[in-house]
Design a protein around this nucleic acid. Structure first.
Lengths: 230, 230
DNA sequence: CGCCCGTTTGATAAGTATCAAGTAGCGTGG
DNA sequence: CCACGCTACTTGATACTTATCAAACGGGCG
């Protein structure tokens, strides 16, 4: 499959109510800078909790620096990571008044926090803000669908796709620095740490990637990766 | 995991811009009956194509009777079914101007078709319509996330969860009639037909379900199913 | 009534998890 | 600054789950 990456933010093009035109897709341009929604900065240490499932949904969050994981704890103790969020991306949008997901900072992380009530007020006033929200929701839907497609593939394809996508979101600086642990990756891809590690070793052996350090990987043959993962 | 079912329609509660209250959640109440968006009825035969990936997005669709599968064809010929849509549910909402998914009628199916341009116009006029769209997008996001969680589980859990959810969406009449083939189920759950069949046999052996016919299944022990699938 | 497609079942192979040991990287404290 | 210790990562041997290939069965529709 294509596995085109769909960043949550900014809204990529005309969303459904076509009203749009929305926020300029300028890189790094904060979603809520354009309106009255400046938001407050908040800093989090490694592993610190941002919100927990069942908490009331109070805010929307934009990653300024660092990285965030959103996940769901299963009854049997397994943890499924739904998404990683890198600088410039927005998370925290959920259909209900209570969170279904939990969120934690992966490393030292700075966020812009915008209160839900402020967004709601602004969206009622400014149709463009409503359209941006609509785009966020639809991109989140697409991203989750792409993730589901990923989980139907083999371990090698999952890891290859994951690395390729992460690289495209991280900026073009090679080699790429991975903010998350192998356990995080495994919990995102529905694999075990051991298997993730083996697949990275295998991709290195094929010269598709090169490991400079365990958290520092260079994609050496992007076309080959693309061909492998579909 | 909980695997609460999240029907696309109607919007369940206050969505993000809180403007809402939206459409009354009356059962079977068509999404677009309330506004000027009546839409036209369209009938499809078994297997008939509704739209294909790369087609322009022209409309939103509500299932009146029958069932629909939305899916994505992978390069290697595999087909991943993203969702099944039953009467009362809405599909066809996508972030871009071109479809990323394809859609086909599973059996004889009737749809209400509402043109995108009409929706956009109405959403600009009526904030409640915009809010309903927002709810549809966010519920679609949640549904895709739940699906991704499902794909990280064992074959038995996937099939059990699938049957339980389908039953809750199909209405309470037992035994439940399955509109789709085993191949469709397999392509939705990331399994093979043989494995789906074996798991159904195994669930029957545990007396959790009972097969009246291959497409007609009764859930005999819902608590046990819930316990098994988390 | 009979054909055909969808479904079930069996035997075997492949892929991934599990359990366990060894290695390396990194922060912390001496 | 270096040594230490802890955590993350890699690698190996084995078991279990699911896919694959193939055949038999059954039910719905002409």
């Amino acid at each position: 499959m294509q596995q085109t990456h769909y960043p949550l933010q900014p809204a990529r093009q005309a969303s459904f109510p076509a009203v749009i035109n929305g926020a300029a897709p300028g890189a790094g341009d904060g979603l809520f800078r354009r309106s009255a929604l400046n938001g407050m900065r908040a800093r989090f240490a490694r592993g610190e909790v941002i919100f927990v499932a069942d908490d009331p949904v109070t805010s929307l969050y934009e990653v300024i620096s660092g990285a965030v994981r959103t996940f769901r704890e299963l009854a049997d103790g397994r943890r499924q990571i739904v998404a990683f969020h890198l600088p410039g991306e927005v998370f925290g949008l959920e259909p209900d008044d209570a969170h279904w997901l939990s969120a934690e900072a992966i490393g030292r992380t700075t966020l812009r926090v915008v209160r839900r009530s402020a967004i709601a007020a602004e969206a009622g006033r400014d149709p463009a803000v409503a359209a941006v929200l609509q785009g966020l929701a639809m991109n989140g839907m697409r991203q989750a669908q792409v993730h589901a497609l990923l989980l139907a593939k083999t371990a090698e394809e999952r890891v290859g796709t994951f690395l390729r996508d992460l690289a495209s979101r991280s900026g073009d600086d090679e080699p790429m620095r991975l903010p998350m642990t192998r356990q995080d990756i495994a919990d995102h891809l529905g694999l075990t740490v051991a298997t993730v590690s083996r697949m990275i070793t295998r991709l290195s052996a094929c010269a598709h990637i090169q490991r400079h350090a365990s958290r520092c990987i260079e994609l050496r043959d992007l076309p080959a990766l693309d061909a492998m993962v579909g």
